[in-house]
Design a protein around this nucleic acid. Structure first.
Lengths: 176, 176
DNA sequence: TGGATGTTCATGGGATTGCATGGGACTTAA
DNA sequence: TTAAGTCCCATGCAATCCCATGAACATCCA
């Protein structure tokens, strides 16, 4: 039961390198071990469709993409079009011996990354944000959760459970 | 499970040469190694049927085409026509010692290639575009994905049930 | 219990390699 | 001989490897 959880902020150095948070790396390595051994660890990374952020994940993400396309006939227009968006935008980023990746210019630009990047666990995948933008988004996500609670009539506070502990959780549930 | 992913733009020199992006070359070489060793590396390349671009790939692409034709009765008109359409315009381009191919005039013309060419990974094959035209294409593809995203959410599960019953969604957790 | 030791990670910088690209030389065919 | 195709080498930038540092945390032992 390996998932990407919680958030970490690391530094983007002059060469465009960032350390992948160790817990995330552990998840990635286990996926590799499970899928095809021998392949050096790397992540699949692409611009998020509707946010100034990057989506990223390991082998299991690639499997998901394959699954999407597997349903379409080999030479259909539809397949080509989806392939462009799904494979064409994806970058395969190698993880070096020190657990770092290099974020290419094009990806940095889409997310507006400069000196610090925030890794946000979303279960099967994770996202990469600028710390500031992610903070905003987190706020919005919390709002939304509150609204949803009202909708369901669940407004009563948990008596003991610490509400503060729900931080990263909120982010995850608000997505997509 | 080697796929062509992401996009790269390289220069087309005065002699009509382009470097194949190193990651793509790696995929091609692995296909060769797997199929029939000894053959020097080369790619299958042909004008895309419905776009100002070229389709290209390695051994596995050829196998796919064979597979398509195999589905049709041996001496049918349909098969003959398809064979011509699929194989007739195919060129076998050799990859030289420096990882480059020479794009013949006829292919360059179909795609309108001049000084720069963009290689677009599409999983099993890749395409070759002018950078400008591809940018347009990419925009369209993204739109389309956005439109049909909800559909994804629905298709994601039933497709291709992996042995063990877990959908692609569970791939991350598939191994405890 | 508290100080010392070790380990895991993030980070920085230098050294090295890989890769795209340009150009020259050699071969082959008209 | 010319033109086109092929091979080989030179170059510069960028990616990759390797090692050093230091902080946060865990472990051990007196």
């Amino acid at each position: 039961m390996d998932r990407f959880v919680s958030t970490f902020t690391n530094k983007l150095d002059a060469k465009g390198r960032v350390s992948i948070p160790a817990p995330f790396r552990a998840v990635l390595e286990r996926q590799i071990a499970h899928a095809s051994q021998g392949a050096s660890t790397s992540i699949y990374c692409y611009p998020a469709l509707d946010a100034p952020a990057l989506d990223a994940g390991g082998e299991s993400l690639a499997v998901t993409i394959d699954g999407l396309l597997a349903g379409l006939p080999d030479y259909s227009d539809e397949r080509d079009e989806l392939s462009v968006a799904l494979y064409g935008d994806v970058q395969l980023l190698a993880i070096d011996g020190d657990g770092r990746i290099i974020l290419p210019e094009s990806l940095r630009q889409h997310a507006g990354l400069q000196t610090h990047v925030t890794f946000v666990g979303l279960g099967q995948k994770f996202q990469i944000w600028t710390p500031e933008r992610f903070e905003e988004r987190r706020q919005r996500a919390r709002e939304k959760v509150r609204e949803t609670r009202k909708l369901f009539g669940l407004t009563q506070r948990p008596i003991n459970a610490a509400p503060g502990g729900a931080g990263p959780d909120d982010a995850a549930s608000g997505h997509e």
